[in-house]
Amino acid sequence: MDMELITTLFRTSIRMATPILLASLGGALTYHAGIINVAMEGLMLISAFFSVVFSYLTGNAFYGIIAGMMASILISLLYSVFVSFLKANNFAIGFAINILVSSLTLFLMRIMFKGENAFNSPDIAPIPELKLITGNYFLDNYILNFSILTYLSILIAFVLAFIVYKTSFGLRLRVCGEMPQALTTAGVKVGFVQLCSSVLCGALCGLAGAQLSLYNVRMFSREMTGGRGFVALAAILISGGKPKRILVISLLFGVFDALSVKLQGEKVAPQFALMLPYVMSVVVLLLFHLKSRKGLKNA
């Protein structure tokens, strides 16, 4: 295979994997707290919208990222109020949030940008890359010169692995999901722990949406998340919420995404290319389920 093609596929894989990794790490926190968060699709989408709007208005990607994170956190808090305190069904509320955000972003975009279903402008400030040219082909193309959020996401994966399994907060988080009665007996409110996990999930999904709209494509379009929130949920379920495993699985999904982009340029039906990452997600989930059932039978 041509070296240039391998390099292009690798860089595209990393770019595609970063939003999934960030969203998955956020969803892993609520997963450990006892909530399977199906609202990540909406959290990423609302962040993608406000990241583009504020990046465009201010000419600064940092303000766009902050705006996207704040919007995602607010929606995540709304989700948490219904699920953690009002005890509503998390799946029903999650899908309702996704529909709400989809309609809200479309409504706001058509008001702000003259009835368009997509907004693209050279005035949208993109997320910068870590620009370091060493002259070494491997370092320049495989290690350096990616989005700053890519490096941050990898760091966050290791930090969360430490927090979840080595700190008192992580212990409370896991007990909240596994034995909430024990947490209540210890005098810690389950709803408060779940609220904290939802805020952190909102922040990380906000970073995911910003990466998607300010780096991957540098625009906003209707439903631009394209099911990545559900791919992130698949990564969480497959990994059991373990951050380091999520890192590896997200990279795998990134490869599938990169292959779908490559296939769109070949003589392959575009519908097949677009559905490849999601088909592979279903296949991987099925294999994981079969392996889990086999393990239970052997036990």
Rank of each mutant, 00 (worst) to 15 (best):
G187T: 00
L43R: 01
L104T: 14
L252W: 05
G170E: 09
R174P: 13
S121E: 10
H32C: 12
M224V: 10
T8H: 02
G64L: 06
S72P: 10
G59K: 10
L212V: 05
M70K: 00
G254I: 03
G115A: 14
Y56L: 15
V284S: 04
F256L: 08
V231R: 02
L74I: 14
I6N: 02
N37D: 09
A208I: 03
L276Q: 09
R218N: 10
L144E: 09
E266G: 10
G177A: 11
F85V: 02
I246P: 12
C196S: 08
Q194D: 07
V193K: 10
L183K: 02
T225N: 04
A234E: 00
F256P: 14
D140Y: 07
L45F: 11
S47N: 03
G42Y: 03
G27Q: 12
V193I: 15
V159S: 10
S51E: 04
L259W: 09
L252F: 10
F62N: 02
M224C: 10
F272Y: 11
D257A: 13
A118V: 01
A269P: 06
L259F: 15
V53I: 14
G94L: 13
K244Q: 09
I246S: 11
L155N: 02
A186I: 03
V190H: 02
T167G: 08
A273T: 00
L237P: 10
L106T: 13
D2Y: 00
M109P: 07
N90V: 00
S121N: 15
L43Q: 06
L237Y: 03
T105S: 05
V199P: 14
M224T: 14
L155V: 09
M16E: 10
M3K: 05
I75R: 06
A61L: 06
S103K: 10
K294M: 08
G135H: 14
E223P: 06
A269N: 15
F119G: 09
I6Y: 09
T185G: 01
F138P: 01
R222G: 00
S239T: 04
L100K: 05
F82H: 04
A186L: 04
S198G: 04
K131Y: 12
G34K: 13
S153T: 07
Y151P: 03
E41D: 08
I99C: 03
I236S: 05
V283S: 01
A232S: 11
Y137V: 14
T134I: 15
N120G: 07
G135C: 14
Y31R: 15
L144G: 13
Q264R: 05
E266V: 03
A96R: 15
A234H: 00
M179R: 09
G229I: 06
T7Q: 13
E223Y: 15
M3H: 02
L152V: 13
A118Q: 05
M280R: 00
I111A: 07
A203I: 14
L57G: 09
V38I: 15
Y142S: 01
I35R: 07
K267T: 06
G34W: 12
Q271P: 00
A208E: 01
G202H: 05
N298Y: 01
K189S: 11
S76E: 02
